[in-house]
């Protein structure tokens, strides 16, 4: 049985992970675009990305595109797995609650 992941369950981090996992394997998104899609501020996104990076769930790559510095973010293999486990745990809560309700009925 999968367990809820406390690092990922925080609402902003969960949305960040959902966005990164939607890119599929080896996909990366630019920091500023991720910030816009999730309606976050630079500071807020940066702080949560650091937490996720410390946990080994995301990787950041600083690069230059047309001579301008840009940061690309991606989920790591561990991140994909941790997020999949977290979603499974959420689904189990739902199916468990449904079974309980059926028993009560």
């Amino acid at each position: 049985m999968s367990m809820l992941n406390e690092i990922i369950h925080q609402p902003v981090r969960m949305r960040i992970m959902a966005a990164l996992v939607a890119l599929d394997a080896s996909g990366q998104v630019e920091f500023t675009h991720l910030r816009d899609v999730l309606s976050l501020t630079d500071g807020n996104l940066g702080a949560h990305l650091r937490k996720l990076e410390d946990a080994g769930y995301v990787s950041l790559e600083k690069t230059f595109v047309a001579r301008k510095p840009r940061t690309f973010v991606a989920a790591t293999k561990e991140g994909y797995q941790a997020f999949a486990d977290h979603v499974e745990a959420l689904e189990q809560i739902l199916s468990g609650a449904e079974v309980e309700e059926k028993h009560k009925a």
Partner: peptide, 24 residues
């Protein structure tokens, strides 16, 4: 860590919404 059924539903909805926004 324990959460209610409603919280789980809300979390899954948020995940679906973010995924759809990124894919679009």
């Amino acid at each position: 860590m324990e959460i209610s059924r409603e919280e789980a539903i809300q979390s899954l909805q948020e995940i679906r919404e973010v995924r759809s926004r990124i894919r679009t």
